[in-house]
Every structure is written in structure tokens, then in C-alpha cells.
């Protein structure tokens, strides 16, 4: 099973990289683009057939290491 994990800064937390990209998009003429958030994307192969068990593991990975939940949030897909 493969987990596809996205980690981004929480809404309301300043994302300086997102802001810089937003300004660059603006200067390229994409005047309608806003609220750019930069994050991380990770893929993890799991030797696990039970989806519920895999989900518990991925959640634990995110809470313990992959995201710092003080400033970041995470979401994932399993498949």
C-alpha cells in the first residue's frame, strides 16, 4: 500500500515562501492568483494490506515526525 502525504503550514500561519511565489505570480500577470501555500509531499510504501491499520500507522508517522502539528497540518491518501 502506498501513502501519499501532504504537509502544509496551518491556515493563519505566515508562509513566507507562499507569499514570495504569490508576488512572482502577480508580476507574471496572474492577477487572480492568491493565498499560495507551499508544502511538502511525501510518498511512503507500506507493507500492510489492512487499510485501517495502514491509516493508523500513517497518522502516527505524521504526528510523530512528518508534520510539526504546532504549525503544520497534514492530509493523506492511501491506495
Amino acid at each position: 500500500m502506498k501513502a501519499k502525504i501532504h504537509v502544509t503550514l496551518k491556515q493563519g500561519i505566515l508562509d513566507p515562501q507562499g507569499k514570495a511565489i504569490e508576488h512572482a505570480l502577480d508580476s507574471l500577470g496572474f492577477k487572480n492568483a492568491g493565498n499560495v501555500r507551499v508544502g511538502k509531499y511525501m510518498e511512503v510504501d507500506l507493507d500492510e494490506k489492512d487499510k485501517a491499520k495502514a491509516e493508523t500507522q500513517v497518522k502516527s508517522m505524521c504526528e510523530k515526525l512528518l508534520a510539526n502539528t504546532i504549525v503544520e497540518e497534514y492530509r493523506y491518501e492511501l491506495g
Binding site: 500561519i13 505566515l14 513566507p16 515562501q17 514570495a20 510539526n68 504546532i70 504549525v71
Partner: peptide, 16 residues
Amino acid sequence: LEAGLLPGAMLRNKSL
């Protein structure tokens, strides 16, 4: 901070 021995977290410098 990451170890939880102090509260809070670090973000990228505002200026990048």
C-alpha cells in the same frame, strides 16, 4: 523545540 523540551516551533525567516 522539536523535542518538546521548550514550547513552540520555528518557521522560515519572514524575509526568506
